[in-house]
Design a protein around this nucleic acid. Structure first.
Length: 289
DNA sequence: AACACCCCCTGTCGGC
DNA sequence: TGCCGACAGGGGGTGT
């Protein structure tokens, strides 16, 4: 489930149970996810206390009391849940999916944090907290889209002279870190910019943003903020930590709505699906130029 | 450098 | 009902 709003929703759900807790034992049910777990992974986590749970881009970072941080990425299908230890309890609904419970963090106070990931595109690793910013996973990351760093001047600077479609640059984590396929489609619709449009065409010869590009920062922040308020989007059966469903998918204006009427007031267009760089793009050819 | 394409893995859904 | 291909919220690697 993991673009910025979903990862942040996971963080907020996990933090109350995880921060301040001690990891008493770690159960690894396989030796790898996308990558092999680090050497002595379970042993290094054992008896560590969690000092903080942060998010950077689509990563979760649990700062531990030994100067290291547990880095977690959910890939395409990763999710966490919190189980209270209730011996004898029978969680019928969990059974089918339990085959993909790959990591169990046994915490104090009889609590478990369980990581489930059917496709195993997620991963976990340990990095010295102080060295995170220089780590190769993090040093190249772009700006946080909800921060002040994302504004029209920034977009004009990174879009200028680029021939790639606007959508491709918005998905590039080296420029803006945290957007994914859904929210890029949604933000471009809100800004009335075609995802196919060459990014450079949104920048004037003077280097200043066009009027359309000047709308984009607020469109990005707006869709992310709205999604956060809704607890993220729940495609298929993904759930929040507490088992409830995020509901922003009901507010999608274009994503997965091929053939539907464009929701822009006064627009008579129809939402269309095209493929860019092998991934689906949804947009309205009528009001997105 | 910049861009397009392929792949990793499993599950689900629509069409036949 | 069953089979088969297309596709899925990410991102790393390679080729041009």
């Amino acid at each position: 489930m993991p673009e910025l709003p979903e990862v942040e929703t996971v963080r907020r759900g996990l933090a109350p149970a995880l921060v301040g807790a001690t990891i008493e034992r770690v159960e690894l049910r396989r030796r790898d996810l996308r990558f092999p777990f680090p050497e002595r992974f379970a042993a290094r986590l054992q008896d560590r206390r969690v000092l903080d749970l942060r998010r950077r881009a689509k990563y979760l970072l649990a700062d531990l009391d030994d100067g290291h941080s547990l880095i977690m990425h959910l890939g395409m299908s990763g999710s966490f849940r919190i189980d209270e230890e209730t011996p004898g309890a029978f969680h019928h609904k969990r059974d089918k999916n339990a085959a993909h419970d790959h990591v169990v963090l046994h915490l104090d106070h009889d609590r478990r944090v369980v990581y489930n990931d059917p496709r195993r595109f997620g991963y976990m690793l340990l990095i010295a907290t102080q060295a995170i910013d220089e780590d190769k996973l993090f040093r190249g990351l772009g700006v946080e889209p909800l921060s002040g760093a994302l504004d029209a001047a920034f977009l004009a600077r990174v879009f200028g002279g680029r021939a790639a479609p606007a959508k491709a640059l918005l998905l590039d984590q080296r420029l803006i870190a945290g957007l994914g396929n859904i929210y890029v489609c949604e933000a471009l619709h809100r800004a009335h910019i075609s995802p196919l449009r060459p990014a450079g065409s949104l920048v004037l010869a003077s280097g200043r943003p066009t009027a359309a590009l000047a709308r984009l920062p607020q469109s990005i922040k707006g869709v992310l903020t709205d999604a956060l308020k809704a607890g993220g989007s729940s495609l298929r059966d993904h759930r929040q930590i507490d088992g409830s469903l995020g509901y922003f998918q009901h507010s999608f204006r274009v994503y997965d709505r091929e053939g539907a009427a464009c929701p822009t007031p006064g627009c008579k267009g129809t939402i269309t699906r095209v493929v860019q760089s092998g991934r689906s793009t949804f947009y309205c050819p009528s009001c997105q130029k």
